[in-house]
Nucleic acid binder design. Sequence first.
DNA 1: CTGTTAGCGCGTTCAA
DNA 2: TTGAACGCGCTAACAG
Lengths: 329, 329
Amino acid sequence: MTTIYDVAERAGVSAATVSRVFNGTRVSPAKAQAVREAALELGFVPNGNARRLRMGSSQIIAVLIPDIENPFFTALTRGVTDIARAAGYSVMLGNTDESAELEAELVAAAVGDSVAGIIVAPTTDSTDYTLPLTRGVPVVAVDRDAPLVNIDVVIADNVDGARQAMKRLKALGFTRIACISGPAHVMTADRRAEGWALEWEEQHGSPPPDELCLRVPYSIEGGRVAAQSLLCLPEPPDAILAANNRIAVGTIRHLMSIGRDLTEFGVASLAELPLILFEPPNLVVLPQPARRLGTLAAQLLLERINGSTEPPRTVIVPSEGSETLASSW
Amino acid sequence: MTTIYDVAERAGVSAATVSRVFNGTRVSPAKAQAVREAALELGFVPNGNARRLRMGSSQIIAVLIPDIENPFFTALTRGVTDIARAAGYSVMLGNTDESAELEAELVAAAVGDSVAGIIVAPTTDSTDYTLPLTRGVPVVAVDRDAPLVNIDVVIADNVDGARQAMKRLKALGFTRIACISGPAHVMTADRRAEGWALEWEEQHGSPPPDELCLRVPYSIEGGRVAAQSLLCLPEPPDAILAANNRIAVGTIRHLMSIGRDLTEFGVASLAELPLILFEPPNLVVLPQPARRLGTLAAQLLLERINGSTEPPRTVIVPSEGSETLASSW
DNA sequence: CTGTTAGCGCGTTCAA
DNA sequence: TTGAACGCGCTAACAG
């Protein structure tokens, strides 16, 4: 382990000078040059832990997401890393696995590592971020609200997304549009179901029948089961609004498995279907602004890191515009 | 910022005792209890940087992958985190974007953060990991070989994967199977093309015609273009072996776009097709052992971290067995 | 079992 | 412009 002292000795200067060279403080060109050479020859790598200990903070942003295997969150993370890197920050990723305990643990670890800030998709709507906040570590909630604390929040306009999808289905001629959304008390799922109900009321002049909105896990199986039971209704729907991509896939698979004619049944997915093989005729895809959520969250966080004390803002990111898959082929 | 000294004072013990409580060394139950209470009341969070500085190493494993938005690498990462977490390590993720410079930068950063070890998917086959290695930080290469240095390597058996896919296609009745693989000099792409050629020779008793193997980017568009030109050949293939999922999707999309009858054309994908809507009749999917690569790499790395000095091993992970999608529905 | 002491490597005063 | 000295918070010796 070569330290600044080794470099200093080799360059014939003091450790302080070496430190200055690496931190941009003015040093005479001759010594600066000597230090750089010595550092190179010795393969000097600054010790981040000592640096952070001394400075009390780091150029690291912690990103805490529920599932690294979910394309939505990886796209979001990508947005964060883009902005972070441009600003000279690196990103530490944590997987909360939708577990509140794990999330709390990771938040504490991030604080202990004196990260510069935290971007988190809260696992529950009752998570508490006073720990970092009281220590001056800014937190930005992304994708989901954090009602208990007063922080910046960046979320997609899920209500509007659902309504837009409904409108597209209506434009395709469908009128009795059911809704399969995610679990109750999951904010995105709640909002999407809400948007569905609002739009239904606008289209029909009356609230939607309760039985037309099912809440299931955000999974393929959830979509499959829900689609099945919706189709068994006395008055079955002629289209289904799926609140995320997995539910949409489950829905379509069920429709195909029972040989349903997809030219006469509409499906909307409130998320992209990345490696889809073909575009069913009446499929409406409303891409989620995942990466944009990430970039915005990172920007807000950087503002806080740089000392902004504006009152916390909630940024609602509009849908990326409904579009059929064809346009992205 | 509350420190162990604050906790110590409040609990009426010395800082060393507080440290011991948090590190599992034996302490009298009474004092241990007092320490825990004091820590809780004060909201004490151990300072990881001080800890790592003092200890000279950390419980952190750096994972460096080319693309966090690629399901293969996220699955791999998931495998690493599973093992790491179970062993009490946390994971720091870096995105190399297939850039050798960025990779080098991230490796240096990891060393500076005194991580316990590094798991990396090398961006080129000439990357050099002497920096961490000379500092005693073990490195395990995953998914791709690192010929320049003598380290543990964990890769999928791409040759065999390609051959198995070929066998499946043959079993379905296809004989003139073309190959669309990734870019030349990308190890996985080379091996898969190699497997294709070997199996062709075994099936036909002669080397395959050159024009039947195309090398394109690992992208949907690459697959589309390659499929198109293969089908224009004087003697077109009756099946295509796609070296990854994106190429497979591009291939199938092209086939469907020209109205090709998929009951008479075979396609094999050397990777999973996660959110697929339906299973084309002659689609062979050979899932990549992504997560397994991650778990194995993590295990090897942990052995090194724990001081193993065995000669470096190259672990070749067998394909996960060919299976059609149906089995995973 | 416990307290005291001494650094880990670095950035930053304060003098010179 | 530069160097000496200090301490960030913690753990590992060493006594007791």
